[in-house]
């Protein structure tokens, strides 16, 4: 079962008031939502770490949720912020390749999900920036491998990653 926006907002308001039971349910729902949210946008081995990172951020910054506004766009902004941060930090030479048939079940995205998705950020990058980040930061290839695969020089790959991540961090709240 997926909790809807209204239910999540209600749980969050109760959590801000100190209701631990509501908070436990909320965090469980957020954990499921975030795991789906990050599918195919970070190496599978890193998804759990990132989800936990966002849950801790949510806990630390729970006062920043304004009860007068929707919950999911708030959660998505924090999720995007931590995601860009994770892409910056985890500069690995090689990591497990993404599996095409991810274990996470695909479901129909509703209007809110489409608006807040990570794909929305990627289309704002130039094709070369998106390709460099995709190969090196998400699939875990080395800069040299990415350069060979894309036909860019190694310096160009590095520059595209740097500029692409900088652009992503400025687009966290972008919805269209």
């Amino acid at each position: 079962m997926r909790a809807d926006e209204c239910t999540l907002a209600g749980l969050m308001i109760k959590a801000q008031g100190g209701d631990r039971r509501a908070y436990t349910v909320l965090l469980s729902e957020c954990s499921t939502w975030l795991t789906r949210y990050y599918a195919n946008r970070i190496a599978p081995s890193q998804v759990d770490d990132l989800v936990q990172d966002v849950l801790m951020a949510l806990h630390r910054k729970r006062a920043s949720y304004d009860p007068a506004r929707p919950f999911l766009p708030w959660l998505a902004a924090i999720a995007r912020y931590r995601w860009v941060d994770a892409l910056r930090k985890h500069y690995r030479a090689r990591m497990d390749e993404l599996h095409e048939d991810s274990a996470v079940e695909e479901s129909e995205e509703d209007a809110v999900m489409a608006r807040v998705s990570l794909e929305r950020l990627f289309v704002k990058l130039s094709p070369k920036q998106a390709e460099a980040i995709e190969l090196v930061k998400i699939e875990g290839r080395s800069v040299r491998e990415a350069a060979q695969e894309t036909g860019q020089s190694e310096s160009a790959v590095k520059v595209n990653i740097h500029r692409g991540l900088k652009k992503l961090s400025a687009l966290v709240e972008k919805a269209e």
């Binding site: 801000q16 631990r20 436990t24 759990d48 989800v51 849950l55 949720y65 304004d66 007068a68």
Partner: peptide
């Protein structure tokens, strides 16, 4: 949900204190 996430959620819930929500006003 995996065990690590469940453990973390229980820890965070145990640590919960009421907070004053941010309001534009």
């Amino acid at each position: 949900m995996n065990r690590a996430n469940s453990f973390l959620i229980n820890e965070l819930a145990a640590d919960l204190e009421p907070v004053r929500a941010f309001r534009a006003r």
